[in-house]
Deep mutational scan, measured.
Amino acid sequence: MQRVNMIMAESPGLITICLLGYLLSAECTVFLDHENANKILNRPKRYNSGKLEEFVQGNLERECMEEKCSFEEAREVFENTERTTEFWKQYVDGDQCESNPCLNGGSCKDDINSYECWCPFGFEGKNCELDVTCNIKNGRCEQFCKNSADNKVVCSCTEGYRLAENQKSCEPAVPFPCGRVSVSQTSKLTRAETVFPDVDYVNSTEAETILDNITQSTQSFNDFTRVVGGEDAKPGQFPWQVVLNGKVDAFCGGSIVNEKWIVTAAHCVETGVKITVVAGEHNIEETEHTEQKRNVIRIIPHHNYNAAINKYNHDIALLELDEPLVLNSYVTPICIADKEYTNIFLKFGSGYVSGWGRVFHKGRSALVLQYLRVPLVDRATCLRSTKFTIYNNMFCAGFHEGGRDSCQGDSGGPHVTEVEGTSFLTGIISWGEECAMKGKYGIYTKVSRYVNWIKEKTKLT
């Protein structure tokens, strides 16, 4: 034993070699072989497995989906700052455009905790909710729209109204504003409101030439003092309507412009014939205590009207009353817009006519005020429907199939267009061939041609 100890002390290297040989010859039971080890760690190889990531292109799944990435790591994937920024906006807080917040056709661009709407022409605001041009839906104005110097929408209202708090709607500024039905039992019968379409306001006024200088022999019209197929109006439903009495009662109609003036057809009036105007009328054979009678003290036909040349060209006249009318729910003026808007309103496509005229061709006159909704007829169809001249200051309205029309005794009465609950004068009943005849239409004086003249002559002093 002493000898062994001496050998170990003198030859430590020998001992180490012996131990190493023993270990190498022993069977290893701690580690699995290569094949079995792979069965336990069965993990798919990654895209760049075996390579240094710093030297390969980034992978979106590896960089940002398996674990949260930084902007720089995302930049490695896209290799483009702009594309990385677009991805980053949604990656950080989701897609803010998912709810489609942009209105009126706006395009949404996502941002971090926010979004941006790219608005089409005519709109602005956070969600493109603000109209900035009158060309689109009248700028959301209830009545009139004008573009300011910086191309912003400025709404306005006709006389007797003021802008509401929203700067879009119009509200009454006087007790009985024009064009409004205020009798409670008839307010439910107000005709369907007309909503502004998209309009090209630059070209809204037709490029028409008034044929002022045409000389033409007097034409022989049949029954051209021209509501057939209409309905009984309720008291106060058309408070701007008046009836004219002269040699015979209810020979023509008219509309209240203001307390002192009536507008009617020029062919209705004769110099030297006494005319009485009755406002607030409903049943011409009954006294309903809503009527107001006034005498006409002055007749002003349009300066281009000449019955000797043509009885229905420039067929418009103004009547001055001896005493002002007292405005109330049964006696209310009709609204008159400017030339541009009167023309736009007419193009809405349908209007209402009213009167006490004959209820059928050569038949009896109506006792109760009649009204009828009539569609506008395109000019080409209008011209083809008659052998008589249709001037540019006239328009056609009615039904091709016949059966409904204005008729004798309705002449001078109103053709009105309702705009968001307020009625505007767009025409004056003038003439036609018979009444409600198939293929024939009622012919009306186009008020847009005469609004400046009306307003100039009827100013209240």
Rank of each mutant, 00 (worst) to 15 (best):
V4Q: 09
E10C: 14
G13L: 14
I15L: 07
T16Y: 12
C18M: 11
G21R: 05
S25C: 14
E27I: 02
C28P: 05
T29W: 05
D33L: 09
N38P: 08
K39S: 12
L41V: 14
N42W: 06
N42G: 05
N42Q: 12
R43S: 14
P44E: 15
K45D: 11
R46W: 09
N48F: 04
N48V: 06
K51I: 09
L52D: 11
E53D: 11
F55I: 09
L60C: 04
L60E: 10
C69P: 05
S70K: 12
S70N: 13
F71C: 04
F71P: 08
E82I: 05
R83E: 05
K89M: 08
V92T: 06
V92H: 08
D93V: 08
G94F: 05
E98Y: 10
S99E: 10
G105H: 07
D110A: 15
D111W: 05
D111T: 06
C117D: 00
W118Q: 02
F121D: 03
G122E: 03
F123G: 00
G125C: 00
C128V: 01
E129C: 01
L130C: 04
T133L: 07
C134T: 03
C141W: 00
C145Y: 02
K146S: 07
K146E: 13
S148R: 07
V154A: 14
C155V: 00
G160R: 02
Y161T: 01
A164L: 06
N166G: 04
N166Q: 03
Q167G: 05
S169Q: 07
C178V: 01
R180K: 13
V181C: 06
S184L: 15
S184V: 12
T190V: 11
P197A: 14
V202H: 08
N203W: 07
N203K: 10
S204W: 10
T209M: 14
I210E: 13
T215W: 05
T215D: 06
T215S: 11
Q219C: 05
S220E: 11
F221Y: 09
N222A: 14
D223Y: 06
V227P: 10
V227Y: 10
G229L: 08
K234C: 03
F238I: 06
W240K: 01
Q241A: 15
V243F: 10
V243D: 02
V243S: 12
G246R: 05
V248C: 05
D249C: 03
C252E: 00
C252T: 01
C252K: 00
S255K: 00
I256Q: 01
V257F: 02
V257H: 00
V257N: 00
K260D: 03
T264N: 01
H267M: 03
I275N: 03
I275D: 02
T276E: 12
A279G: 04
G280E: 01
N283R: 12
E285N: 06
E286P: 06
E288T: 06
H289T: 13
H289C: 08
V296K: 01
I297W: 04
I299G: 04
I300L: 10
P301H: 08
H303Y: 14
H303P: 09
H303N: 08
Y305F: 07
A307F: 08
A308L: 12
N310Y: 04
N310E: 06
H314F: 07
H314D: 05
D315H: 01
I316P: 00
A317K: 00
D322F: 02
L327G: 02
L327I: 13
N328C: 03
K339T: 10
E340K: 07
T342I: 02
T342Q: 03
N343D: 15
F348H: 08
G349C: 03
Y352W: 05
S354W: 03
S354N: 09
S354Y: 07
W356N: 03
W356S: 03
K362H: 09
G363S: 12
A366I: 08
L367P: 14
Q370I: 02
Y371N: 09
Y371K: 09
R373G: 04
V374M: 09
V374H: 02
R379D: 08
R379C: 06
A380R: 07
L383W: 14
L383N: 10
S385P: 03
S385C: 08
K387V: 05
F388G: 08
T389L: 10
T389E: 11
M394H: 11
A397I: 02
A397H: 01
G398Y: 04
F399D: 10
E401T: 11
S406V: 05
C407V: 06
C407G: 04
G409I: 09
D410Q: 15
S411T: 14
G412W: 09
G412S: 08
G413N: 05
H415N: 01
V419W: 10
V419K: 04
G421Q: 08
G421P: 02
S423N: 15
S423V: 08
S423H: 15
W431Y: 13
W431R: 09
E433Y: 06
M437V: 14
G442I: 10
K446C: 04
Y450G: 01
Y450E: 01
L460T: 06
T461S: 14
T461I: 08
